[in-house]
Design a binder for these strands. Structure first.
Lengths: 113, 113
DNA sequence: GTAACTAGTTACCTTCAAGTAAGTACTATT
DNA sequence: AATAGTACTTACTTGAAGGTAACTAGTTAC
């Protein structure tokens, strides 16, 4: 195997790792939402209008397991729970920005035409 | 709705568009593979070792529809078909690089630990 | 006591992405 | 005539992702 092929194989593996997190309909939207500030369960739900509580709960758990977000419970009345990005979550910023930039290009070229 | 909320809503929409293309197990790997040069069906299959011909064929079609790649048939013997990135496909480069960069960070932080 | 707010959970169902295995069509080589 | 190489296609099946609707649990306000 030559250098180019080895590089490609390595990148294919890394892509798979990254896809584990950005895969799915809701994870990127949730992370994006939290880049605008820490939010409570209900706030995220109101922002991502068509997500069900089941999916939101499930995806928040997955993001927590992958150390992208943290969950903090405040014993206010009624109890509130705040979700925020970890440093790892915040490190997604540049990637998110590039996905958004490309999304705009793609939209112009394909979606609206 | 304030400015921040409007911006977030817009970004959520754009994210959805981008996800249409980067969604799925095979699309990003295929695009990545083609950033290393134009390739034939069999070459891609040998590079992405565990993709089946069915999935490869299906995903190549989807990428063609979304104007990410072009398909060129050469009437050599036997017939060969070459796939290459369109300008829109090439415009995914920066996004791919950021996904890869982040993938490396994520791998270090979560996957290997 | 009943409605409303918080943040979820649970059961059930449907749909779609993906996997498996075999087959197709053409040509060239032996 | 049989095998191998090109690039797929087709039929069938499995499993995961996602959707719907109703329900839980604790507290506060009316």
């Amino acid at each position: 195997m030559n250098q180019k092929q080895a590089t490609c194989q390595h990148k294919l593996m890394v892509t798979r790792d990254a896809l584990e997190v950005i895969q799915g309909k809701w994870r990127l939207p949730i992370v994006l939402s939290l880049t605008f500030g820490d939010k409570r369960f209900g706030e995220i739900q109101r922002e991502i209008v068509d997500i069900s509580p089941k999916m939101l709960s499930q995806e928040l758990k997955a993001l927590e397991v992958n150390k992208i977000i943290t969950r903090t419970v405040y014993d206010s009345m009624p109890v509130t729970v705040e979700y925020s990005l970890t440093p790892l979550g915040k490190s997604m910023r540049k990637m998110l920005d590039e996905i958004l930039d490309w999304g705009v290009v793609f939209r112009k070229e394909v979606v609206v035409k």
